[in-house]
Lab assay of single mutants.
Amino acid sequence: MGFKLLSKLLVYLTASIMAIASPLAFSVDSSGEYPTVSEIPVGEVRLYQIADGVWSHIATQSFDGAVYPSNGLIVRDGDELLLIDTAWGAKNTAALLAEIEKQIGLPVTRAVSTHFHDDRVGGVDVLRAAGVATYASPSTRRLAEVEGNEIPTHSLEGLSSSGDAVRFGPVELFYPGAAHSTDNLIVYVPSASVLYGGCAIYELSRTSAGNVADADLAEWPTSIERIQQHYPEAQFVIPGHGLPGGLDLLKHTTNVVKAHTNRSVVE
C-alpha cells in the first residue's frame, strides 16, 4: 500500500471513529477524501466538511520552486461564519470567499490569524475590503508590521502568557507558548472536538522541520505538551499544512522538532 493511500485511509478511519463516538456532533463529509496538494491548482481553494458547521479550507501556493498546501478553518456561528487564517495570499483568499459563498452561503463576518507569517495573514486586506472584521493577538499584529505583512485590524486580548485561553464565538483560542513562531495560536472547536494546530503542528508525513527561522526550538516541545494537557479530548487535529489526523500529530511534531534540534547540535 502506497504512503499517500495509507495517509488518506488514516484520515478516513479517524473521521469514521469520530462519527461513531459522537453521532450528534459529527456529520463528516462523505463526498470524498481530504484534498491534497496535487489536486488543488494554485489560485483555487477546496472546502472539506469535518463536522456539522465545521470545515477546513485548503489552498496551495508556490514557494521556492515548489507547491505547498495550506489549511485553515471555518466555523459556523449562528447565521454567520468565523474564518481562521487566510488562504495564503490575496488571490487565494478572494477564491476562498467565493467558494464559501458557493458552498455554504453564509457571510464571513470575523477572521482570526493564528500567527504573523504570510500563509496566515496574506489576504487580510481582501477580507477587510469584503467587510470582514480581522483579528490577531497584539504580538501577531506587531510582528506582521515588522515583517511588512498585512496586519489584522483588531487585537485579541488575554493571550499574552503561555497557557492563556479565551473564548471567541464558537471557538476557544489558546496560546501554548512559542513553537513554530513566538505568537502562534491554537484554535479548538469544543462542539466538535476539532483542534486546529496551525503551523505549530505537523502532518504525519512530514519528517523535516522546514521553516524554523522564527521558531523557538527549545520551547516548542513544552508548548505541545500544554496543548495535549489542555485538549486531551480532541479527536480531529488539523495541521497548518497537509493531512489531518488525531492527537498523534502532536507527538510526531515533537519528535521531528527534537530530531532537528539534535542534528543542529551535532553539526
Rank of each mutant, 00 (worst) to 15 (best):
residue 220 W to G: 03
residue 48 Y to V: 09
residue 34 Y to D: 06
residue 110 R to L: 04
residue 98 A to W: 05
residue 163 G to R: 08
residue 154 H to N: 01
residue 175 Y to V: 12
residue 141 R to C: 13
residue 228 Q to E: 13
residue 56 S to T: 10
residue 191 S to V: 05
residue 226 R to E: 15
residue 15 A to W: 13
residue 212 V to W: 10
residue 40 I to Q: 06
residue 54 V to L: 04
residue 99 E to D: 14
residue 53 G to F: 06
residue 70 S to R: 01
residue 74 I to M: 10
residue 195 L to E: 02
residue 242 G to A: 02
residue 23 P to I: 15
residue 187 V to C: 04
residue 127 L to Q: 02
residue 192 A to F: 09
residue 32 G to V: 08
residue 248 D to Y: 03
residue 207 T to R: 12
residue 234 A to P: 15
residue 209 A to V: 06
residue 220 W to I: 14
residue 108 V to Q: 01
residue 18 M to G: 06
residue 97 L to S: 03
residue 73 L to W: 00
residue 36 T to K: 11
residue 212 V to G: 12
residue 99 E to W: 07
residue 22 S to D: 13
residue 162 S to V: 04
residue 53 G to Y: 04
residue 53 G to S: 08
residue 245 G to Q: 09
residue 102 K to V: 04
residue 42 V to A: 10
residue 242 G to W: 02
residue 105 G to V: 13
residue 21 A to I: 07
residue 155 S to D: 11
residue 233 E to W: 07
residue 81 L to C: 14
residue 2 G to W: 09
residue 242 G to Q: 02
residue 148 G to L: 09
residue 66 A to D: 07
residue 70 S to C: 15
residue 206 R to Q: 13
residue 164 D to S: 08
residue 55 W to S: 10
residue 116 F to T: 12
residue 116 F to V: 06
residue 258 K to R: 12
residue 166 V to E: 08
residue 185 L to N: 15
residue 3 F to R: 11
residue 7 S to L: 03
residue 87 A to C: 14
residue 181 S to N: 01
residue 119 D to A: 00
residue 33 E to F: 13
residue 205 S to L: 11
residue 254 T to L: 10
residue 122 G to S: 07
residue 98 A to S: 09
residue 79 D to H: 13
residue 4 K to E: 14
residue 23 P to Q: 07
residue 226 R to D: 15
residue 216 D to A: 09
residue 188 Y to H: 10
residue 93 T to N: 14
residue 49 Q to P: 04
residue 166 V to L: 09
residue 30 S to R: 09
residue 115 H to T: 00
residue 84 I to M: 15
residue 121 V to L: 04
residue 167 R to C: 04
residue 153 T to R: 08
residue 259 A to N: 14
residue 126 V to T: 14
residue 11 V to Y: 06
residue 19 A to M: 15
residue 62 S to F: 14
residue 69 P to S: 10
residue 62 S to V: 13
residue 236 F to M: 03
residue 142 R to M: 11
residue 86 T to N: 03
residue 182 T to M: 03
residue 141 R to G: 10
residue 43 G to A: 12
residue 155 S to Q: 05
residue 63 F to C: 09
residue 227 I to C: 10
residue 23 P to G: 11
residue 65 G to W: 04
residue 102 K to H: 02
residue 219 E to S: 07
residue 90 A to F: 10
residue 31 S to M: 07
residue 252 H to M: 05
residue 31 S to C: 11
residue 125 D to R: 09
residue 15 A to S: 14
residue 239 P to F: 01
residue 239 P to D: 01
residue 204 L to E: 03
residue 34 Y to M: 15
residue 264 S to F: 11
residue 251 K to F: 02
residue 185 L to D: 00
residue 221 P to R: 13
residue 53 G to M: 03
residue 81 L to M: 07
residue 125 D to H: 15
residue 240 G to F: 02
residue 156 L to D: 01
residue 31 S to D: 02
residue 90 A to M: 05
